[in-house]
Nucleic acid binder design. Structure first.
Lengths: 171, 171
DNA sequence: GGAAATCTACTCGGATACCGCGTGTCCGAGTTATGGTGG
DNA sequence: CCACCATAACTCGGACACGCGGTATCCGAGTAGATTTCC
């Protein structure tokens, strides 16, 4: 089990394509486009909505849209929204358990943050800083720069087809 | 569950005290000093030994000693030894699942590393770099600088008492 | 033709099941110093 | 006094139980647009 969950990966991939189409899309279309479990993605998007990254529109022809420009959404934002502000390390205050203290640690032993904890927090800050450097717009640009020019049009067509032909499928 | 396990925390605390006493110590003494589960700590130390961080001496009066100076052991070394080279993120190659590919992704889609994966790897490198900055010697110095001067002597006495009085306890 | 009822395609949120992994414990096997015993 | 043996104190490694949380699925409720029905 990795620190950054599969949920974040799914969310990011969906958001990337949401950033591509300015029109917005439903969770089903997004997740089926990525080959990602639909129900799971739906749950992820409600978290993204609560975090103010996307906005939802209910009812038929509803769906999700980015709440702000893709350039203003960082990878760290998405991680926080989906995984919650998960900590790299949770300190168990071992320093207070020293046998010499006999259950009653003196003040100097528990003052401030544990030295080991401090190192871990520094590492976490370094990681978050790196994740904050990358925006959805950067990522989307890099993804689509790898693909041939026709790809982006195919994607857009696929989404619009799905949106318009939905009803006629059933009848 | 945090990314850096409790095992690492336990291991680091024990190693800190092992760095303090040049004589080496048994797992039991180390773990009881820290109020850490003994059997669990034993398991951790075998991993530390395999990674070449400590050396073991079997038999009665055996125990563990640092395999090299504390200044040459980084926090990252300990993390790798105990948690294994755990990855922050494991890419599921979602990019190959795009519905447009219909199960057979073209070469351009899977070439190189996934863009999202690349960002995560950069973040991981940043974190590891930070953990590599700190050595056991640094940490030990910081810990003992917080404590009164008498503390270090009490620790050493406690260890030597345990080592010498072990046999006489039973008789 | 327009208003009301119905239907459909969404979002939203909770309940639940599964499963891997971290945590912790236990136990047996191997190893070495120490203390005791017999020649 | 010395060789031998038993024992204690370790390490080493595997097996196993437990519980938490990530992953995934299902379902009911609410909402809004489109369609149909009815006057």
């Amino acid at each position: 089990m990795s620190f950054i969950s599969a949920g974040v990966e799914y969310g990011l991939h969906c958001l990337l394509y949401l950033a591509g189409t300015t029109a917005g899309a439903s969770v089903r279309d997004l997740s089926e486009m990525q080959g990602v479990p639909v129900d799971y993605a739906a749950k992820l998007f409600t978290r993204l909505a609560k975090a103010g990254i996307v906005e939802s529109k209910e009812g038929v022809r509803g769906g999700f849209v980015l709440a702000r420009p893709a350039a203003e959404i960082t990878v760290q934002d998405v991680v926080d929204a989906i995984d919650g502000a998960k900590r790299v390390f949770d300190c168990r205050e071992v320093r207070a358990q020293c046998a010499l203290f006999d259950g009653e640690p003196p003040a100097w032993a528990t003052r401030g943050t544990c030295s080991i904890h401090a190192v871990m927090e520094a590492a976490e800050r370094a990681m978050r800083a790196e994740l904050q450097k990358h925006s959805l717009a950067d990522l989307a640009a890099r993804v689509f720069s790898k693909a041939p020019a026709s790809y982006k049009h195919q994607v857009i067509n696929w989404f619009t087809d799905r949106a318009t032909n939905r009803r006629s499928d059933r009848l």
